[in-house]
Design a protein around this nucleic acid. Sequence first.
RNA 1: GGCCCGUUGGUCAAGCGGUUAAGACAUCGCCCUUUCACGGCGGUAACGGGAGUUCGAUUCUCCCACGGGUCACCA
Length: 550
Amino acid sequence: MDWKALAEYLFPHVKETPEEIENRYPKRELAEGAKVTRIAPSPTGFMHLGNLYGALVDERLAHQSGGVFYLRIEDTDQKRSVENGVELIIEAFRNFGLTPDEGATLTGETGEYGPYYQSRRKEIYHVFVKDLMERGLAYPCFCTEEELGKMRAEQEANKENFGYYGKYAKCRNLSFEEIRQKVQEGIPYVIRFRSPGSIEHKIFHTDLVKGKLELTENDQDLVLLKSDGIPTYHFAHVIDDHLMGTTHVVRGEEWLPSLPMHLQLFQAMGWKPPKYLHTAQLMKIDPETGAKRKLSKRKDPELALSFYRQIGFPNVSVLEYLMTMLNSNYEEWRMANPNEPMQSFPFNTKKMGGSGALFDMDKLMDVSKNVISRMSARQVYEEVDSWAKENDPEFAALFSRDPEYSQAILNIGRGGKKPRKDIGLWQDVKPYMAFFFDELFTPDYSQMPALDRQMIDQILTDYQSVYDPEDDGTVWFNKLKEMCPKYRLCGDMKAYKKDPEDYAGSVADLSMVLRVAITGRAQSPDLAQVCALLGKERVMRRLKQAIERE
RNA sequence: GGCCCGUUGGUCAAGCGGUUAAGACAUCGCCCUUUCACGGCGGUAACGGGAGUUCGAUUCUCCCACGGGUCACCA
């Protein structure tokens, strides 16, 4: 077989040589140890937690080492591509502060190693395919989907390995004449790699996450170019990551089975493969079957990044949670460095776990409450404001009507050593502070303590003449204590607990009466501060309103 | 079915031949406390099974079981 002639016959339009292409992609000039990583998503319409998980590793690896973090769009599958897919990708990463240094952008691309869209690199792939073919390492395959299906059924029946290899690789040894004939008949074909491997051989490889691996050599004649001339992921990965100078490839462990294939391709090309980090999968318990399984795009809406945004998790919370999964010592570091930016954490691939982790919403919530408790009232205000504008415009209007008022509310119990942790989601803010707004004040008087109605009303009446908005917390509470004897309530909790029978109740009941009247519910932040914010007029009105209750 | 990865409490996880087997979340109890939210203290709770190597295995090797992934002209 004259491979050179065949290559020329099938790729007459390819004039460039591999050397010429390589010269267009010079070695990057980076400091020793600098890592080049990339995120290479497909524009399928939405970004999910898995993308972010990997991207976080990519970004940290690159920027922690003074390297480059770039974005390449893997749009080789036009069937699954979505109109504004690229914008969604770029926006999602930007929201999370993972901005690539080069690659695809909203307006085009930046960087010297492009094009960064695989769909724009067709000519490049063809040069290398032609080269492989000239060396007898690639050949056209005319098998139809139907034939392949039949083959698979036969393999299943014979309990043989599936796939296109050995004796099943029917097109492997077609003669030039046969090929020419089929091409002239207009039969579509793909270009396959002629695998020199055998499953009798083992290969050894060290993965940065999984460690030492013993894998079976690849013997599959994988498709390099689809019938439309566009490369498969496998081929594009090898060509692109070589030319673009990627030093570290971070991807999910579902890619592990195709690693031998990729390694074989790198070898055939005469290139040094990058380091690989095959990250563990994010899992969940399937609510229907009760089984642990990989998080799925289709079945699990909580996987979409937009889901977290919608219910109002701060991006930082999601990032911090992912980081705790990525590096288990992150939590420890965070406790020791509560105010450091996440970027100061010494991220280490050695600390990455090798097994799949269940996604834990409770844990995320806890992380988020801590994240938010560390923010200033002003920060929280701004985040809530922008979240609410998008997701709850009605509340947004109330919330932003008086920014100082809202911030003062958010400031209750904020800061200090033991800050309140009421908010984990921006969604939580509305129920938390609703009673501060007359429009949302829907009192539940059934929460009143078990005292006589008459007594409760008396307390509410009396308090109106006692209340002074100028009182500070201590004075405020002392006044409540002083009121107690009149109703046979005990002003001293310790004394009350000793002999509860001697009293009708305690100052706790009295303050609960006021709390329910003023906030409309049994739980609230510090009542004195609440009253101070509500203002005298509103407090008085609510006290009266409570007396008039049904 | 073949190939591959994994298996420490409910969850995430330290551990890398000798430990009372960390810590976090969740859960339970107590304390603090005018409610709640914090905070403090404490409890329940784990090395999948079997061989082997070793004076000694959670840690090393093998087998099995279970879980997961993968076997496309999708990535």
